[in-house]
């Protein structure tokens, strides 16, 4: 997982992590405006601090750690005031994403599935959302996540197992309800 830090710190390479950072920021804040600010602030701080990075460091987890620290600081400043949730707004932005070379049907299926997964993840607790994104979407190792969250790797594994179990349940409920709704629609058509 440790890459050539020098190569990774090239500005063009740094920008490769922008989607991952934005996704992580969305998971933490659930607010696209705050997520955008967090990502920008992360890059500003990272560029200022890049000289302090050790050659053995993993740039990706370092960037994610910076983002997380900024977010924690912001939370402290807000003194746990209620968070504004703009999930409606982010859907339109995030949905622009996906599919490049897929056919229209595959694109549609992929988009529907992505939305379903995103909705299920957003129903998890903050702790579970975070661990799912870092492990399943960003591919950070248990040790890297443990260092980020300041907890033992074993704790990361058991949190991940719990988060996955909950997510599986949410996705299966969602699938059942969408199947039910499809079947209701079909029944109505034949009546």
């Amino acid at each position: 997982m440790t890459l050539d830090v020098y190569e990774e710190m090239q500005d063009t390479t740094l920008s490769c992590y922008i989607d991952g950072l934005f996704g992580y920021a969305m998971i933490l804040t659930r607010n696209p405006t705050e997520a955008a600010d967090l990502v920008q602030e992360t890059y500003v701080r990272a560029l200022k601090a890049k000289k302090s990075l050790r050659p053995s460091s993993n740039v990706k987890s370092w960037l994610f750690t910076i983002l997380r620290n900024i977010w924690l600081n912001q939370l402290r400043h807000k003194r746990s005031a209620p968070q504004i949730v703009e999930l409606e707004a982010h859907e339109s932005m995030a949905d622009v994403a996906i599919a490049t070379s897929k056919d229209p049907h595959a694109q549609y299926v992929s988009k529907v599935e992505q939305k379903r997964v995103r909705n299920a993840i957003q129903q998890l607790t903050a702790e579970s959302r975070e661990i799912i994104v870092l492990r399943e979407y960003e591919g950070l190792s248990y040790q890297e996540i443990a260092a980020m969250l300041d907890c033992p790797a074993g704790t990361v594994m058991s949190r991940l197992a719990r988060a996955r179990a909950k997510l599986r349940m949410l996705l299966s409920v969602d699938e059942q309800s969408s199947q039910q709704s499809e079947s209701d629609k079909a029944k109505r058509r034949f009546q």
Binding site: D19, G20, F22, G23, M26, V96, R118
Partner: peptide, 12 residues
């Protein structure tokens, strides 16, 4: 399923 839904979000 999670793998297929990558990226979860894309930066605007």
């Amino acid at each position: 399923v999670l793998h297929r839904s990558r990226p979860l979000y894309q930066a605007p």
